[in-house]
């Protein structure tokens, strides 16, 4: 395994958002590229609305990422991006959705979410290499709000930060997703990839 440069990708989102679908797709893409890959997910008590964290590791044996170990952080929700920042290596890469999914305590007015500016400031303190995308909007534009995750993967693929390419990801979508959702996800992938161009 030592001949492949290790890359650790940490993903975080909110239950019901499709974080695990995106994780599996990214893992399948890496596998299609012939690289050693392992991924992990933690979703114990995460009913709908709980935090879902997952990992994709290229060239590693362990499925887990500790604090300061992630090369890339993919946040499918901005507050979760902020919460997961300690996992990122300083100077690592961040792709995050800019659109919130409010937790119950915020929806009921008992607490407030940090603003997008605050999230960006915290991210900037760790790295210059970040990009925020309106994932839900892009998902809706593609045809389904859940496809927003795939848009974020599109931006990652287009960035060249990992061996994963947009073409390889499109191939994995065609090979692994149910026929009726392939087009929506290909469209979301393209929309996300364009954002990074």
């Amino acid at each position: 395994m030592s001949d492949v440069k290790p890359i650790r990708i940490f993903m975080t989102g909110v239950g019901g958002q499709g974080t695990l679908t995106a994780t599996t797709l990214l893992t399948q893409t890496v596998l299609h590229l012939g690289l050693p890959v392992t991924s992990g997910e933690i979703h114990g008590m995460a009913q709908r609305g709980g935090v879902v964290e997952s990992t994709v590791l290229i060239g590693c044996k362990s499925p887990k990422i500790g604090h300061g170990e992630a090369d890339v952080l993919l946040g499918f929700e901005p507050m979760e991006t902020l919460r997961a920042l300690p996992y990122l290596k300083p100077g690592g890469t961040v792709f995050s959705s800019s659109e919130y999914m409010l937790p119950l305590s915020v929806a009921t007015g008992r607490e407030t979410c940090p603003s997008l500016d605050e999230v960006e400031t915290a991210v900037k303190a760790c790295t210059d290499d970040f990009r925020f995308l309106p994932c839900q909007t892009l998902g809706l534009e593609a045809g389904a709000v859940q496809a927003g995750n795939i848009a974020l993967l599109g931006a990652l693929a287009a960035s060249g930060k990992t061996p994963v390419t947009v073409e390889a990801m499109a191939e994995a979508i065609r090979a692994n997703m149910k026929a009726k959702i392939v087009d929506v996800n290909l469209k979301a992938l393209e929309l996300g990839a364009k954002q990074d161009a």
């Binding site: 300061g68 920042l85 940090p114 915290a122 760790c126």
Partner: peptide, 17 residues
């Protein structure tokens, strides 16, 4: 290990019915 600073006391997402 240098790690990025997150923020404490963010609103939680406890499991809920």
């Amino acid at each position: 290990v240098d790690c990025c600073e997150g923020r404490d006391n963010l609103p939680m997402r406890p499991p809920n019915l």
